[in-house]
């Protein structure tokens, strides 16, 4: 177990797209069993933060520590092998391949075929709709089903930390609720989650702790209870 129960810690992380600095001096933490959310407007750097953690966009400065290990310079596939799983924005499922194939690829790091089958059964248990359609082309799924597939695919690895990027994007309200229920269920199962959401209402309901990003910097942070009462947040993100 980790010191102070910290699963993930970012220390003064910076990241660039070419010459443009996308993240400045980002420091944040995710503790064991927690749901932590990153809030902010479009282009504030929320997705970039997740991409930097999972190694898709390498950090140009600072340190990223996962389970007491420095992962700043690691390759994305090495980070996945450690159990840090990123469900990217837009789901990014493998269209043209079946649902079952998508799930199998989710367990790419796993060598044991029996374990793979067991986990797939577990995923099908949570998402029965995926089982029903397992041999269909994943491109034919609706947005909500695609999100379920993306999350199911992430669960094939037995994550020790999940990064979720906009899981509710483009979904009808009843599906947003469904996805929220699943996030809570995953978290109750012991998986800490770093959640990026445009829908601040949803995010503040789910999370224990939140960070607000503005143009690549963290401007406010605190427990979600305090954040819900923060006037500037209410004005900017909750529209009340």
């Amino acid at each position: 177990m980790s010191k102070n129960n910290t699963i993930l810690e970012l220390q003064n992380v910076e990241s660039c797209y070419g010459k443009i600095k996308a993240l400045r001096n980002i420091s944040c933490k995710v503790g064991a069993g927690e749901i932590v959310t990153l809030l902010g407007a479009n282009g504030a750097g929320k997705s970039t933060t997740l991409r930097t953690i999972s190694g898709l966009t390498p950090a140009s400065a600072g340190k990223i520590i996962f389970m007491d290990e420095d992962i700043t310079a690691k390759q994305p596939h090495e980070i996945v092998e450690m159990g840090l799983i990123h469900v990217p924005e837009g789901r990014r499922i493998f269209k043209g391949m079946t649902i079952q194939e998508n799930l199998e690829l989710g367990s790419f790091t796993l060598r044991d075929d029996r374990e793979r089958k067991k986990r797939m059964a577990h995923v099908f248990d949570i998402f029965p709709i995926l089982h029903e359609r397992r041999n269909r082309d994943s491109a034919m799924l609706s947005g909500g089903e695609q999100q379920m597939l993306a999350m199911g695919r992430a669960m094939m690895t037995k994550p020790r930390l999940l990064l979720l990027d906009e899981p509710s994007m483009g979904l009808a309200p009843f599906l947003v609720k469904e996805i929220m229920r699943i996030i809570i269920r995953l978290n109750k199962g012991g998986v800490p989650i770093l959640l990026v959401e445009q829908n601040a209402k949803v995010a503040l309901q789910l999370a224990n702790h939140g960070y607000v990003l503005e143009t690549g910097k963290i401007v406010i942070q605190g427990s979600t209870e305090t954040l819900r009462q923060d006037e500037s947040i209410v004005k900017a993100y909750l529209g009340e």
Partner: peptide, 20 residues
Amino acid sequence: KAMQAIAIDQDACKLMGINV
């Protein structure tokens, strides 16, 4: 299958733990 998946989406493959 990983080979086919890389043709579809390289970044997503990296996130599956595939050494592209």
